[in-house]
Amino acid sequence: MDQEKNLVGAAEEQLVVFQLGNETYGIEISAVHEIIRMQSITKVPRTPSFVEGVINLRGRIVPVIDLHKRFELPLEEETPHSRIIVVEVKGVTVGMIVDSVSEVLRIPQNKIEPPPPAITGGIETEYLRGVGKWKEELIILLDLEKVLDKSEYKILEQHSQELAATK
């Protein structure tokens, strides 16, 4: 693999690039299962607020999360461009709602830099893998494992349940 990459020059990463609010994000293409249009989502009670619910993905029950809520970004209206990116990380399949999916990019690894502290409006650096520079644009690379981390999620779940209990 490495040799192959050297043949084409510098090592590259293939990214699926999407919009979330005003920012452009990227995730590694290998984690992406498929990209689907918005469809009806069944709400599931007693789940963290960023869990929108579950969908029927050709007979499979797949949970869907809203990345705006996950990162506490300002909420966006659903538009015809809204998509669900279905990713699989460590055997767990999850759909992520994004505002739009723009393209698939190959970006040389040397164009990717470690995340500077507090670069973006809201997302904490721990969820980031780095920042890629592509033409004039900055692409924020998400660390999917962190974003979908169960232990973190469990804490959030407890938190939201406690909130629900106090209501």
Binding site: T42, V44, P45, R46, T47, V51, V54, I61, V62, P63, G91, V92, T93, V94, L148, K150, Y153, E157
Partner: peptide, 14 residues
């Protein structure tokens, strides 16, 4: 409901 959602009190699945 899948590993990500896990056990939800009051629900047995979907």
């Amino acid at each position: 409901l899948g590993e990500f959602i896990g056990q939800v009190p009051g629900l047995a699945g979907a």
